[in-house]
Design a protein around this nucleic acid. Sequence first.
DNA 1: GATGAATGAGTCTTCATTCAT
DNA 2: AATGAATGAAGACTCATTCAT
Lengths: 193, 193, 193, 193
Amino acid sequence: MTRPQNTREKIERAAIRLIAARGIDAVSMRDIAGEVGVTEAALYRHFANKNALVWDIFSAHYDAFAHELAALHGPQKTLRAKLAAMISACCEFFDRDRDLFTFLLLAQHIQRLAPKNYQAALPAMLNDLLAAAVKRGEIPTQNTEITTAMVMGMVLQTALFCLYQKPRPGKMQPHAAALSNACWQVIKNHERK
Amino acid sequence: MTRPQNTREKIERAAIRLIAARGIDAVSMRDIAGEVGVTEAALYRHFANKNALVWDIFSAHYDAFAHELAALHGPQKTLRAKLAAMISACCEFFDRDRDLFTFLLLAQHIQRLAPKNYQAALPAMLNDLLAAAVKRGEIPTQNTEITTAMVMGMVLQTALFCLYQKPRPGKMQPHAAALSNACWQVIKNHERK
Amino acid sequence: MTRPQNTREKIERAAIRLIAARGIDAVSMRDIAGEVGVTEAALYRHFANKNALVWDIFSAHYDAFAHELAALHGPQKTLRAKLAAMISACCEFFDRDRDLFTFLLLAQHIQRLAPKNYQAALPAMLNDLLAAAVKRGEIPTQNTEITTAMVMGMVLQTALFCLYQKPRPGKMQPHAAALSNACWQVIKNHERK
Amino acid sequence: MTRPQNTREKIERAAIRLIAARGIDAVSMRDIAGEVGVTEAALYRHFANKNALVWDIFSAHYDAFAHELAALHGPQKTLRAKLAAMISACCEFFDRDRDLFTFLLLAQHIQRLAPKNYQAALPAMLNDLLAAAVKRGEIPTQNTEITTAMVMGMVLQTALFCLYQKPRPGKMQPHAAALSNACWQVIKNHERK
DNA sequence: GATGAATGAGTCTTCATTCAT
DNA sequence: AATGAATGAAGACTCATTCAT
């Protein structure tokens, strides 16, 4: 998937893999160092401490992903098209690098490490898109924050479903269209009384 | 020395409160004991170990909640009515005992403690309801597991939204109707190609 | 072997069995209570504390055994006959109640619990017998303490050998004659230069 | 006796000294660390855990001692000479490093930590020597395992006698000849009927 | 006689982190 | 850049013991 060349990248991949599998608290610096093949002390040459290690890795990839999505929906004119593009990208991302996606999925837990007033970029972007669509009359007036939550929930829970599928994790791409459609139904029928 | 009659219940509440706030791994037996006002060793008279403590509390309440939902949807005839009843109950539950709801929300993390072959009752129930509704022609043929994931996702993510609302957690009941409606849209429009 | 009727006797048997198998430090009051089927607190109704429990049980049986041996060798005239009687009794004892014998074998470890100036009865008795035999010219002048140690060592180590025999512990009686003979050789040929 | 330079050796000596005096279970990692002058955690850099610590130290010295004895008896032709050489070496060893000897004396207790199918080298070697001597007609046909037990018992119990001698432990070397002689009597007169 | 709940000190072990080399 | 050794705090858990009932 990725070809880590220098130590820092190796650490990143090891951390992502381990944390995706077990969660932050269940992964020790020793675990990561062991996976990379260096001493624990070596990790501190690349990251200030464990929190920084997790946060730096998380935010770099999270921001990159948010950017990617922004770049994808930009060209699309309608909300529906934007949505479809983004959801499809999510599915592809999941299928391409499941560890990283799962790692980013831990956002809620990781955000206790965030700097004060940190605002997750993805829900904010989605909310803005919805608000803009309301403004230009493309969708009914609605509580866009709730819609955001519902849309995020659908995508993430579907990802979890694929992740825990037996006997091995499943692909997400096959569900992209259904997801996209479902989100659209929710958005266009969510009318504030 | 001390004359509490309900130490076990105190432990349960303390554990629920602390774990809801910080997550399992970030709560120590010491924390729980301190919150209750007993020694760590006292916890071990009531629960075999930390895992058992978390799992016993979790499964008791989870099962009770699943039962409650089952009792509520039973009398309803249509899937839509069943859904509305259950979602409304979820919202009320969230508003009534946010700590417990949040604790149960950690299901995914807690299930690593589960006995082998444990199958979460709630998604299973929802999936069964959907399958039955498909069978009697109330909703289109569809991949009910995916629908289940999407419905669960909407409810849970909305709960998380309410939970993290600033400046303080919000109520969920006001969104019950919208949630219910959204779920229905997703279900009735999810057609398998 | 023994038919424990009251609780105290049950405790004794349980303690003997467990301690023979695992050693004093590896057996907890909880273990003993569990084996008996009572609470830990109940043990304290019968024994002042763990040390007292172990010591009381040990010394009672140890003294009884020492008495038994004394009664057996008394009628015999020659040292050789005395020796034969006692060794045979040891072997029978081992075969009859291996747990108790093994428990008494821990004497060296248990004696840290002994009252000050406690002197183990068995080696003392053996030493006296040897000294008397020297006095009346039955055996050569020798360092009887060393002879005592060697004789004890032969018997005890043979017991250990039987105890750890694979696939299951063996009987000791079959080796009684050989042991008796060996001890006699050691005694009668141990001449002080 | 020894002049430990690095921490691991210091730990070894401390463990040997403490365990010889009190037994394995009565010595805590804290005790050892305190004796060395480091934190408990430091011990874990040198040994995986307490069991490993005890076992590693035990088996290293035990094997070394077995080798030493093997090297000593090798040049001797007769069993009697081999025996004399080994017993003398045991006595010298006891007098030179009583702690280590006592520690090795705990073999029976330590062997619960041994890897499966572990076979103590010393009794095995002695048994082999006896069997060979039987074969070449140097001593009568006999149950060599029992002879082994008796010889070991004589030496070890004599060591214990010296160890617990009042007011302070005594030397073993002065008893070497008597011991050697006694063992030989036992061996050459142990005839299978 | 016996229990159930509790305690406080202690067990082994792991953690994130530091620092001299 | 990286290591090996160390630390102090914390982790879960067990122990012998007490005491009100």
